[in-house]
Design a binder for these strands. Structure first.
Length: 761
DNA sequence: GTAGGGTTAG
């Protein structure tokens, strides 16, 4: 039979889709049917060609998501009596599902019922899939129950819809139904279903399905292998996963990455990196995901050298500027203490995202680059970039370090507005921020707002009270924490020891030290022993402190000796102090604080020659003590003072006030001692300088600038000086004002001539 | 028309 010549060549469907300007196309502009030679009788070919262009056009409209136009065109085709083929229906239903337009899908469903006799299994499945894609599971199930010829695809479509929408119980019920009916299923059904069991709560079921597939499936494939491997990993069965992984005939980079992630989550960074090494040996194609997890393993274990090698590898692969690899490189350098390298790596990222910014901001906040951190934050905010809760946590850290409660409160409000303070990280950072800014009540409020505080949150509030010298409340919170089922960790015990230390609770601290490991399962580390040394030393039990240093299961470090030296200074034990200082300076010959403590010890014991010698050694080594600086925040502005400072615009008023205060407190204070401020001064000059110490200037300014009922809140970078501590006590008595000073160690709350530390610090 | 991965904080 000769084929009939067409009047024009029929283009391929694909080329038509790109050529036809679909939106304005109507039946009047394209032939409603391909013209055939009228004298010829219809043949099979001619039947197939009838309405072909219209159907192609309908498919084209559907694929472009122009559902309204497609429906209109469908009506025009009806009017013109053009046959709508199954393929067109499938396409339009597919788009209805993708666009979740169940109303249009229902119109098509009705049309099919009216116009299509005996719809094929394919068409039924298309309809069915449309309802599934639109999440209309009731309609889908109704249709499913009506379907006479459910094929394996029908089951799979519904099963897949259930798993994709996390309706795992329904998925498992359906599978059970399939099983009861003895339906045939192949690997696709298993891999779809296993998705539902990749959760610890379904692990047993997952195992059953695994054994089911072993019995019913003759050949496994990479989907099954991969899904089973994934399922066991997600259920926490690393060992089983590894067995499956080793047996997999075909492994790809995703499988390797998953296993590495599992190792890092179990704190097995070394194993993760070993896997990475094997990947390199086996020549697996690497991508940004696997690099990022390898870098994370390095940063977590502070493995700078391996991290640097991986960085080199990334450069070779040309992925250095990629945000997914560039960001963990930044984090690696931040964690390894190389802020400069981190900045360089950051600058190389072509399009840094919020994660990249939070990584670099965390670096800024950790390395004291507070101004840079705040400035970056302001710029990001005004640029409209998406911020995340990590960024806010870093900013809370900065606010707490610079002790600016106003800024902290503003950022807090901002974070609430952005909805980014809702997780425990942010909340715990908030507790610390408020407490370190002198607002213990706000800190407690932040703690109370946490629905279920975890160990870190409890630790933050315990440490806050400890830091403010409120030992009994801190220890009470420690008890409550256990009642609520939160398990203390090593950091919690640091808070507990801080509380005991600031209040001289030697017995209690001993009890905690002895029960840490047995009762709480926390093995003491050197920081805990040093805490105990500090507690003995402050309490004057210097021999006990020394005994502990000598008997503890760690080599004493700088902190161990410094704590003992501090105690020797307080309790004027020159011999032991000298020995502690020698040990301390042997470990770190440049420890300025160690020299200053020893100098003060000599000076306060009248050993001027030895004191002068310390000063000489320091000068020879070019060691200068950090300049004492006190500051306070008034109406959002930070006012800083150093000793004898005359730069403040209100200097006149400040000094007048200070003179007045010095006169009224004179005689009320204890006899002046010697402290770090006095190191390079002669005794007479020293006393003169004492009257202009930074704390006193800050107190004077605080009194004249703030409201009479509000406490004067002052921050100092060094430890509070004994004389100024006395001064603050007197001022609080004479003026009736409450004064709060945060020094480098803790908070002092002065009220009516008393300090919350009871002169014990 | 099935499965699956990463990086930032207290």
């Amino acid at each position: 039979m000769a084929s009939l010549p067409l009047q024009f060549p029929i283009p391929s469907e694909a080329s038509l889709q790109s050529k036809i300007p679909t939106s304005s196309l109507t039946l009047s502009r394209i032939p409603s049917r391909v013209s055939l030679n009228s004298s010829s009788s219809p043949t099979k070919t001619s039947q197939n060609q009838r309405g072909l262009i219209e159907n192609v056009h309908l498919v084209s409209l559907s694929k472009q998501g122009m559902l309204t136009e497609a429906l209109e065109f469908l009506n025009e085709m009806d009017t013109a009596g053009v046959f709508v083929n199954t393929r067109s229906y499938e396409c339009i239903l597919d788009m209805c599902g993708k666009m979740k337009s169940v109303s249009n899908g229902r119109i098509i469903h009705e049309r099919i019922k009216r116009t299509v006799e005996n719809p094929s299994g394919f068409l039924w499945n298309s309809l069915f899939r449309m309802y599934c894609d639109c999440c209309c599971f009731d309609d889908a199930k109704k249709l499913f129950n009506k379907m006479l010829s459910r094929d394996p695809d029908s089951w799979r479509i519904l099963l897949s819809a259930y798993t994709q929408n996390a309706l795992f119980d329904e998925a498992l019920r359906l599978f059970s139904e399939m099983h009861m009916l003895g339906s045939k299923y192949h690997s696709v059904v298993y891999s779809t279903l296993l998705r539902a069991t990749s959760d610890p709560q379904y692990m047993e079921l997952g195992k059953q399905i695994h054994s089911h597939l072993i019995r019913n499936l003759s050949n496994s494939d990479m989907f099954i292998d991969s899904t089973l491997f994934h399922m066991y990993l997600k259920c926490g069965c690393l060992y089983s996963s590894k067995l499956l992984f080793d047996r997999m005939t075909e492994k790809n980079v995703v499988n390797w990455t998953e296993l590495m992630v599992a190792y890092t989550q179990e704190n097995k960074q070394k194993e993760a990196l070993a896997l990475f090494g094997t990947m390199l040996e086996e020549g697996v194609q690497l991508d940004e995901f696997v690099f990022s997890i390898a870098l994370k393993a390095c940063s977590t274990r502070n493995d700078f050298d391996t991290g640097r090698q991986i960085h080199g590898h990334i450069i070779k692969c040309g992925l250095e500027s990629n945000v997914s690899t560039g960001t963990p490189i930044v984090d690696l350098y931040v964690k390894c203490g190389c802020l400069e390298d981190a900045l360089l790596a950051f600058q190389r990222i072509v399009d840094p995202n919020d994660v990249s910014w939070s990584a670099i901001m965390s670096g800024y906040s950790q390395y004291g680059k507070f101004e840079e951190c705040l400035c970056t934050f302001k710029n990001l905010r005004s640029s409209g970039m998406d911020l995340n809760s990590f960024i806010y946590t870093s900013i809370f850290h900065v606010c707490s370090a610079i002790a600016d409660p106003n800024l902290g409160t503003q950022v807090h409000a901002d974070a609430i507005k952005s909805g980014l303070v809702s997780d425990l990280y942010g909340e715990s950072a908030l507790i610390s921020m408020y407490s370190r800014s002198g607002k213990l009540d706000y800190a407690h409020r932040a703690f109370n707002s946490i629905h279920q505080p975890d160990t870190v949150a409890w630790t933050a509030i315990i440490s806050s009270y400890a830091y403010h010298g409120r030992a009994s409340e801190a220890l009470e919170l420690f008890k409550r924490m256990q009642k609520y089922g939160a398990r203390p960790n090593a950091v919690t015990f640091i808070g507990v020891f801080t509380a005991c230390s600031h209040s001289g609770l030697v017995r209690e601290a001993q009890d905690y030290m002895n029960s840490m490991s047995s009762m709480y399962g926390v093995d003491p580390i050197i920081d805990h022993y040093n805490g105990m040394v500090d507690i003995y030393s402050r309490a004057g039990q210097l021999e006990e402190a020394l005994k502990l240093i000598q008997s503890m299961p760690f080599e004493p470090d700088v902190m161990s000796w410094k704590s003992l030296l501090g105690g020797c200074w307080i309790h004027k034990n020159v011999e032991l102090g000298k020995m502690s200082a020698e040990n301390l300076l042997q470990l770190d010959p440049d420890d300025t604080a160690g020299y200053i403590l020893l100098f003060n010890l000599y000076a306060s014991s009248g050993k001027w020659e030895e004191a002068a010698n310390i000063r000489k050694v320091m000068a020879e080594r070019d060691l200068k003590k950090e300049v004492g600086c006190s500051w306070l925040v008034d109406r959002g502005k930070v006012h800083r003072f150093i000793v004898g400072d005359r730069h403040h615009p209100q200097t006149e008023e400040i000094y007048t006030k200070l003179e007045q205060l010095n006169l009224s407190t004179m005689g009320n204070e204890d006899k002046p001692s010697y402290d770090e401020h006095a190191l390079y001064s002669l005794p007479a000059k020293r006393e003169e300088q004492l009257l202009e110490h930074s704390e006193r200037l800050a107190i004077a300014f605080g009194l004249i600038s703030s409201h009479a009922k509000t406490p004067v809140l002052i921050f100092k970078n060094l430890r509070a000086c004994v004389d100024c501590h006395e001064f603050a006590k007197c001022v609080s008595k004479i003026t009736g004002r409450e004064i709060v000073i945060r020094d480098s160690n803790r908070f002092h709350h002065f009220k009516s001539g008393m300090c919350s530390c009871n002169d014990y610090w």
